[in-house]
Nucleic acid binder design. Structure first.
Lengths: 227, 227
DNA sequence: TACCATTTGTGCGTATGTATG
DNA sequence: CCATACATACGCACAAATGGT
């Protein structure tokens, strides 16, 4: 039995309530003996379940079944082109606006910079099969661009360019539902006031903020994930 | 240097583009020699980065820097009571409806059962500080309830009861933006047509479907995550 | 196709580090 | 302060996948 076998058997016991929520389960050494495997193998299995939120492990206190297991759903954030192509449609995008601009206060707060800091402002419409798919508004800190050169975002979208060139950064994401503002509705080809799915994302490296994006998807868009 | 040290150094090299996207990095053995650690330690570090989507590993082919790193955001799905209390507000809930009912087609499809299958229908309003926080509509397969006994969902919410009693199951989640229907708007104390943030979640065990929930949050609600 | 060489994946036994009851 | 249980590490071995001959 490998570590996945151990994990599955432990999971079965948790689900079968052989080990009740809150209860301390046998130690690694005891389980290793019972299953006839090395302690490291048990460790690997239990660590996996702890990462999934089903077990809570503390030195000396031992391992216990989580009382209120926090379900962790993993969202895979792909670039928009991939998302569109995964639907079997042809991707395209149009840059609607591109200029230098001072960031508004709300954006400055999210990016951790002073309000009015000058950044590149980009407004882009993403298309699926020629029809509007998502509306993007982005502030971009050109100071962090490699070589200080601003790429041609008419060629490759800023979304994709950043993933390939300034990626491997950290960030936070917020999802919400809003009413489409008139300009947004016009860009997306929907009615003002229609509900839009909003994704707002701030990205930064250890040194500096990189970009803040506000992405709007029209009615019918669904963000899916598996648990 | 421990495995986290190895991971951080590898991450630094990726960000610094010492190793470019798509490029094969040195093998585990070589890195182990370079860092002066055991191969298992390098393995642990690289496995971690691969899980994060920054590396792609294949036997024989080696380890390469991901060309298009898929950002994996982890959502921690907590029970609504915790979410409300985390905001420093008092949680409460009211059961608006509770009856046996055949499931509609859309729900049947999501749950993988025949349309019209009889399940328990529950409509609940979750309160934060006495004010509507979320509106919940749920179909529940009472066949899977331990002992076949239906708990008193006036006491503990179905949400919380299920997490504690039928938890450790799998499922899928969908998020979307919709317009509040008149009944929903009335329950939430908002205007019909206002945008609502919709969470739909189907849960099942290996044997049978457990429950399908449709959860509505009114304007202002934001789902946050860190990358 | 068949086989081989390479690289990652996993396992074992042991030892030491570290948080903590 | 100590005993305990998890966390990590080492070195070795073999398995499994797979790119290339």
């Amino acid at each position: 039995m490998g570590w996945e076998g151990v994990r599955d058997e432990v999971l079965r016991r948790i689900r079968a309530r052989d080990w009740a929520p809150g209860e301390v389960i046998p130690g690694e050494e005891a389980l290793a003996v019972e299953f006839g495997v090395a302690r490291a193998t048990v460790n690997r299995a239990l660590r996996d379940l702890a990462e999934a939120g089903l077990l809570e492990r503390r030195r000396k206190a031992g391992t216990r079944v989580a009382l209120l297991p926090v379900r962790k759903a993993t969202l895979e954030i792909s670039i928009i082109r991939q998302e569109v192509e995964a639907r079997g449609e042809v991707y395209g995008h149009r840059v609607l606006e591109s200029r230098m601009e001072g960031v508004p206060l709300a954006v400055a707060l999210r990016m951790g910079v002073a309000a009015g800091a000058r950044m590149m402002f980009l407004e882009t419409l993403h298309l699926a099969g020629g029809r509007p798919f998502a509306h993007e508004v982005r502030w971009l800190n050109i100071a962090v661009l490699p070589g200080g050169v601003v790429p041609d975002f008419g060629e490759v979208s800023a979304n994709e360019w950043l993933v390939q060139n300034v990626a491997y950064a950290t960030g936070d994401i917020e999802f919400s539902a809003e009413s489409a503002r008139p300009e947004e509705a016009a860009a997306l080809g929907i009615r003002a006031g229609d509900p839009v799915f909003v994704t707002e994302r701030a990205t930064w490296t250890a040194e500096a903020p990189i970009t803040f994006v506000r992405l709007l998807h029209g009615p019918g868009y669904r963000l899916r994930t598996m648990v």
